[in-house]
């Protein structure tokens, strides 16, 4: 997609923005920015992405670049808007420009949050490549609140009860293979 953007093809840019807008917006919010500021950060990072397209031909590193750039943009916004750090413990780091404030609902250091975001994004992309049944099974067992029991999952997917666990293992194994392949 980056190569096509450089070849001056607007739909490729639409596809790039469509794919990564949620990553930028969620990262900015996760770092503690209010929604309106997070929206501005999406815009700022999109402009930076446009300006650095030529440096970003290696698209496997694109999510990492976008997360790091979102962090810098968020930090500048905290400073410019004089949004106080939510945690006194990190304010010194903040002044040293080595970290940005942790949001009210956030846990962990900014570094940990960004690593979490990168890992979650990889999983999201990997899960999109699983079969619909695998996606549904993992959602039932791990995402739904409260999680489905094996019996509930078997009923909803209309599969035998004793096949839930083996199916789940196969789905996780497939996900692992997809992630390993994407790291190559």
């Amino acid at each position: 997609m980056v190569a096509l953007c450089l070849a001056n093809h607007p739909p490729a840019w639409d596809a790039l923005i469509g794919r990564y807008a949620a990553l930028l917006f969620t990262t900015a919010r996760r770092l503690g920015l209010p929604d309106a500021d997070a929206e501005d950060v999406v815009q700022e990072v999109s402009i930076l992405l446009y300006e650095h397209l030529a440096d970003l031909r290696e698209t496997t590193r694109l999510p990492h670049w976008l997360i790091t750039t979102t962090r810098r943009a968020a930090w500048k916004r905290f400073r410019r808007e004089n949004i106080p750090p939510f945690s006194e413990a990190v304010s010194e780091e903040w002044l040293l420009e080595s970290a940005i404030p942790v949001g009210k609902e956030s846990g962990g250091t900014p570094e940990e949050i960004l690593l979490e975001m990168e890992r979650a994004w990889e999983i999201r992309v990997g899960m999109e490549r699983l079969s619909p049944t695998c996606q549904r099974l993992l959602h039932l067992l791990y995402v739904q609140e409260p999680p489905a029991s094996y019996a509930d999952a078997a009923h909803q997917l209309q599969i035998p009860l004793n096949s839930v666990s083996p199916n789940r293992s196969r789905c996780l194994q497939r996900l692992k293979e997809i992630l390993e392949k994407s790291e190559d």
Binding site: A22, L24, T26, W121, I123, V143
Partner: peptide, 29 residues
């Protein structure tokens, strides 16, 4: 397994910004 389950849970929490924000970012190209 524990890390993957945690990441699967987080992977569903990505929020797309309002459509006007996406359109604006698309327009800049």
């Amino acid at each position: 397994l524990a890390g993957t389950v945690r990441a699967i849970q987080q992977a569903t929490q990505f929020v797309r910004p309002p459509e006007r924000v996406v359109r604006k970012a698309s327009r800049l190209f």
